[in-house]
């Protein structure tokens, strides 16, 4: 008796089509939701800044505390803190002897804020006194599960994460909050005090990662 059978190549093609048809949502859903635990040692990475100088996080650990700020020069929430106000520059001025600051831009090609020239201009226009690291593959952003620009990570001298979240307590695009969480965490860490707020919900533009299959 004749039995119709799928040719093996047909099955493979069907499987491939089904995989391709998966929406980004389904792909993303398979990403583990785990984040770097507060108190855990942060993972190392190396990225180049807008002048082409490579910075390895591990080289800074143990020398000073570290602030990582996810950045996108065209995002209105970044403009709130770097243009309309000088939240980060003020923080830098107050703590530059004890803290290394790094901005990290994980915008993928074609997305808002991407591009060396754009970031060079922003560094100049916003007078940012610390390096902007370019992470266009989004590898470091995904490693840290950075979701918004800004999304700030504060690392203590021993290389452990002591704060993750928003810069301040006002998630609007226009006004500043009354509490600067990053400043509070840095001051408490410097004074060997308990960190009172270790995590907040970040706010800002979504980090403009490439789709998982475009990396």
């Amino acid at each position: 008796m004749f039995r119709w059978r799928w040719p093996r190549s047909g099955l493979l093609a069907l499987a491939a089509a089904l995989i391709l048809a998966c929406s980004p949502k389904e792909k993303e859903a398979k990403e583990p939701p785990s984040t770097i635990a507060i108190g855990a040692r942060v993972p190392d990475f190396a990225l180049k800044d807008t002048d082409g100088v490579e910075h390895r996080l591990g080289d800074s650990i143990g020398k000073r505390m570290i602030v990582l700020e996810w950045f996108n020069p065209e995002c209105p929430f970044i403009k709130k803190h770097h243009q309309a106000n000088k939240t980060m520059n003020d923080l830098y001025d107050a703590m530059k002897d004890q803290v290394f600051f790094f901005a990290i831009n994980s915008s993928a090609p074609g997305m808002q804020g991407h591009g060396l020239e754009k970031n060079r201009r922003a560094k100049e226009e916003f007078a940012i006194p610390y390096p902007i690291l370019i992470d266009e593959s989004g590898e470091v952003g995904r490693l840290y599960k950075a979701k918004t620009s800004p999304h700030v990570f504060v690392i203590c001298l021993d290389g452990t994460l002591i704060y993750r979240g928003a810069l301040d307590d006002d998630p609007s695009v226009a006004t500043l909050g009354s509490i600067n969480y990053v400043r509070v965490a840095l001051e408490q860490c410097m004074g060997n005090r308990t960190i009172s707020v270790r995590e907040t919900k970040p706010y800002g533009c979504s980090v403009k990662y490439a789709a998982a299959d475009q990396k």
């Binding site: 949502k25 993303e28 952003g141 995904r142 950075a146 979504s206 990662y209 490439a210 789709a211």
Partner: peptide
């Protein structure tokens, strides 16, 4: 509507 963006961002 749900909108899931690359990087596990849910809006």
């Amino acid at each position: 509507e749900r909108l899931v963006s690359p990087g596990g961002i849910l809006d």
